[in-house]
């Protein structure tokens, strides 16, 4: 019995890998993805110009700051664009008609899309990181292990936003998915401020107590994306502990699991007419 179950999981893994491979192929053959990659590369190269304009001694800081910003921005942008488009396109272009009747579970289709998108984002973050580290090395900026840890945190944020976009795309159209996922990203970046406002003795939630439940709901539901920002630690040369990386990974994974479960539930109920 146990053996049979492990066989079933192996088959699931093989089918998810096939679906993810196809999603990856679709993205890398997509001009929008390639265009965004070139734009991100150009953005990074632009940091060289900015760093040369910086106040003496601040050039490396500009390079670091701009690099983190560019990799995070384009990673999230590609995550939202791909998340909004890829699953919807499958339904809109009716290619899903050729997949669902095959011996695959619907949850495998959702997982295949998700892991395919993650594979694209690994390439994206990987290529941009190598390019950026090369620029840092060329300019003689210190390339420390903390930079690698901060990049890992950025990748965790992208992993989470991809799951958010996929969840929205399992029931809404691309434009709405894009708006909602971008909204979660923006609110997630400032949600800690809402938390601080809730504990403050004055301000919005004291003046308007009716808004308090809304604020509390936002703090409970929306992920705090500040968790994934290690750039300040790198700039201030504060070490990022291994235990912090583990807890940030756990925080990310708990959101991803809930979001994927929701995506599967929503996708499971759909009629493909």
């Amino acid at each position: 019995m146990k053996r049979r179950r492990s066989g079933a999981w192996r088959f699931t893994a093989l089918r998810v890998a096939a679906l993810a491979g196809n999603t990856f192929k679709e993205a890398v053959r997509n001009r929008a993805f390639i265009g965004l990659m070139f734009l991100a590369g150009a953005f990074l190269a632009f940091s060289l110009v900015l760093s040369s304009l910086a106040v003496t001694g601040q050039g490396n800081r500009v390079l670091l700051d701009f690099g983190f910003f560019s990799i995070s921005l384009f990673g999230v942008l590609i995550a939202i664009v791909m998340g909004a488009i890829l699953l919807h396109k499958e339904i809109d272009k009716k290619t899903i008609f050729t997949i669902i009747p095959k011996p695959v579970h619907r949850f495998e289709v959702v997982l295949g899309k998700y892991f395919g998108m993650l594979a694209i984002l690994i390439v994206e973050v990987g290529v941009l990181s190598v390019l950026w580290l090369g620029l840092l090395w060329l300019k003689g900026a210190p390339v420390t292990p903390e930079i690698g840890k901060a990049l890992l945190l950025i990748f965790l944020e992208i992993v989470l936003i991809t799951a958010v976009a996929l969840m929205f795309s399992s029931f809404s159209r691309p434009v709405l998915t894009g708006i909602l996922a971008t909204g979660v990203f923006i609110v997630g970046r400032v949600v800690y401020l809402v938390g601080e406002m809730l504990t403050a003795r004055g301000g919005l939630f004291v003046d308007h107590p009716g808004l308090r439940p809304f604020g509390e709901a936002v703090v409970r539901v929306v992920p705090d994306l500040r968790v994934f920002d290690g750039s300040q630690e790198v700039l201030l040369e504060i070490p990022i502990r291994g235990s912090y990386l583990v807890s940030a990974t756990g925080y990310c994974m708990s959101y991803v699991l809930v979001l994927l479960a929701l995506s599967v539930l929503l996708f499971q109920r759909r009629d493909f007419t």
Binding site: K25, E26, T98, I99, P103
Partner: peptide, 27 residues
């Protein structure tokens, strides 16, 4: 084996690639 009405396929693939992909789904 199923052929949908007016079949739509991944247009970025070649015939051999799409059949290979389907074959993988059949393990």
């Amino acid at each position: 084996g199923y052929l949908p009405e007016q079949p739509y396929f991944y247009d970025y693939l070649r015939p051999r690639e799409i059949l290979d992909f389907f074959g993988k789904l059949f393990l």
